Amino acid sequence: MHASFRRGMRLGVPFAAVGFLLSMSFGVLAVQTGLTPLQAVAMSALVHAGSAQFAALSVVGAGGGLVPAVAAAGLMNARFLAMGVAVAPSLPGRPLTRALQGQTVVDPSWALANNGDGTFDHRQLMGSTVPQYAGWISGTVVGVLIGDVLGDTDRLGLDAVYPTFFLALLLAEVRDPRTRTAAVAGGLLALLLVPVAPPGVPILAAGVVALVALAR
């Protein structure tokens, strides 16, 4: 096993622990919203994107159908287009091999693998995703199994874990002088839009602002 892959696995463990709590709250909410335990676990295994999964649940919980739920999830995951474009030149191999490696791109792994010069360590990217994927699925399993015991997620403060997780990622970018302006501008815009915009729109708008700020 390559040293970069092992290092990625070590770096991914703390994020996996947080992801476990996030996905546990997702499992509880999914069952309460009407999904079967199997559907909830399958969604976590196939999507593996907390923001998209919670956005889809919010639409379903509000009475929306499959199409608007998928649209909301797609809006949330649109940021991966820009992230994929950024990481693509650093992925070796033929198109299919690179596409498979690209499936390991999640927010923390993308940030951890960033070398700071426009390149990414693809082995560290994949390594850091391994424990996070395991933690996400296992957390969902626990959530759907003990959802009746936990009751509402806000009882244990699980509803606060997800925004806190992304706030930590944002603070990491704020500390870097090269990305501080973009991070602050994007974060403030998302904060202003969350109460009034549909799910997915705040993060898209924030991403556009951040890209413009970085370009300038």
Rank of each mutant, 00 (worst) to 15 (best):
R155C: 11
L170V: 12
V87F: 00
Q39I: 06
G147A: 08
Y133S: 05
L171D: 01
V13A: 04
Q103F: 05
T129R: 02
D121C: 03
L29V: 15
L150M: 09
A185H: 03
M24V: 15
P37A: 02
G12R: 01
L57T: 06
V70F: 14
V174T: 10
L171F: 04
W110F: 13
L204A: 14
V144N: 03
V209L: 14
L156A: 11
H48G: 00
L29K: 11
L214E: 14
G147S: 09
T36Q: 06
G102S: 10
Q103N: 03
A73C: 08
L189F: 04
T36P: 13
A3P: 09
D176E: 08
R6F: 10
T33E: 06
G12V: 02
M9D: 00
G186V: 11
A49W: 04
P14D: 02
T179H: 14
G34F: 12
G61V: 05
V60G: 04
R180A: 13
T153P: 12
V149D: 00
A88P: 05
G187A: 14
V209K: 11
A111Q: 11
V13K: 04
A52K: 03
D152K: 02
Y162S: 08
T97L: 03
A215V: 03
A210T: 05
S128K: 02
L91G: 10
G143A: 09
L150I: 15
A182T: 10
G84E: 08
P198T: 09
I137C: 02
Y162K: 05
M43P: 10
L211V: 15
P177C: 13
L57P: 10
W136D: 00
G93P: 15
G63V: 08
M76L: 12
G27P: 12
G151C: 10
R123P: 01
G74V: 10
A49H: 12
T140M: 01
L46N: 08
L188Y: 05
F165S: 00
E173A: 15
A42N: 05
V201A: 09
G118H: 06
M126Y: 00
V28F: 07
M9C: 05
V142F: 06
A185Q: 03
L191H: 13
A49K: 01
M76P: 06
V13Q: 00
G116C: 06
L11H: 03
G102H: 07
S109P: 08
G157R: 04
D117S: 08
